[in-house]
Design a protein around this nucleic acid. Structure first.
Lengths: 196, 196
DNA sequence: GTCTATAATGGGATAGAC
DNA sequence: GTCTATCCCATTATAGAC
């Protein structure tokens, strides 16, 4: 991966971020050195500081952008309307598809919360809370409409998210089940769980 | 935490393990130094090597013993017999109770898998697989007896475990709900999820 | 924008005294 | 069993040449 001197900002930036995400997911933030990231990208360690003021900011930016992308993508896919059951199915399928395609980012955004400084932690946690609330509102709407039966909408929302994110621990693209079949299996579980 | 010289093996050993578990959970394995653990215990760093050959073994022992304790505890609590529904309720309540009481160990045993060397990783993963299989067998028994309706017992087992372990992300002893109420809420979700 | 070189600090692990 | 002292190496981040 030797690289001669020169200017490569348009391509180096994304490469730094991709390498950092992959390495953080594989070995953990604290276990990965700036030198390792640089080697992966094909530059010297010092050059990374053209793209991040420090290692902490690199982690934080990766996590915040993942959460932003998650919220934006759901806003695009949410069918809205008054059919809570249809929205919950859309959420279920969306969450599985989005998260299995970005397993590294999901892993890092959960595992490395403890390595964020105080205000960075608060920022990422707030985005997570907003996402949980999106689901909670669907559950409340369904409850009000009489199509769901659940005692605690907030807890049910967190339970459903934990259930769905769990797909990442076993799903593999080359596995027996296609993603579409996995979505259907989990939608079946979610549907029954909410008493729909 | 200054400590004079002397022999304290019976108490230092457990203290090393408790401090390591707490620090690993809070900051991550790679981010915690042997010096930090020693400070927490009140000894010098060199003294830790009376209790572990190296840092990696310390992590592995903590994880393996947690998994052993989990399997042993369930073996004690499993009512056995032919009532799959009763066994599933027992499993649900057991899993929540055991895991919320040992949040640090649960966190470490999942997050730090990637910091285990090859054969240590395989050993812990095998224990995890065995635990999943305990639940899977209950689900299959219930399916055969016609009290559960589920398409994929293995996947359902992993889904239920993810759902239940998710309690750890929000449950606090001082919170609004008592643990017993949480167990009941989740048993309600699990019961419906398996079509019982 | 990237390089080389380096400053300043801290890491895991060991040796030998007590 | 614990201490002090230390070896050797890696770390993040910066400085200045190109």
């Amino acid at each position: 991966m030797a690289r001669t001197q020169g200017s490569h900002s348009e391509i180096t930036g994304p490469r730094v971020r991709e390498a950092a995400m992959r390495l953080f997911a594989r070995h953990g933030f604290a276990a990965v050195s700036m030198r390792q990231i640089a080697t992966e990208v094909g530059v010297q360690a010092g050059a990374l500081y053209n793209y991040t003021p420090d290692k902490q900011s690199l982690l934080f930016d990766l996590m915040r952008e993942h959460m932003d992308a998650l919220l934006d993508a759901w806003q695009q896919e949410d069918p809205g309307g008054t059919d809570a059951r249809a929205r919950l199915e859309a959420f279920t399928r969306f969450h599985i598809r989005f998260n299995t395609r970005r397993a590294d980012a999901v892993f890092v955004s959960y595992m490395e919360l403890r390595n964020l400084t105080g205000e960075n932690f608060a920022a990422v946690t707030e985005l997570r809370r907003i996402y949980e609330t999106r689901l909670e509102e669907i559950l409340r709407a369904g409850q009000d409409a009489g199509v769901f039966t659940l005692a605690e909408p907030r807890i049910t929302a967190m339970a459903v998210i934990a259930l769905l994110t769990g797909v990442n621990t076993w799903y593999r693209d080359a596995g027996r089940l296609k993603l579409d079949e996995v979505e259907t299996l989990y939608w079946d579980m979610v549907r029954r769980l909410v008493g729909g």
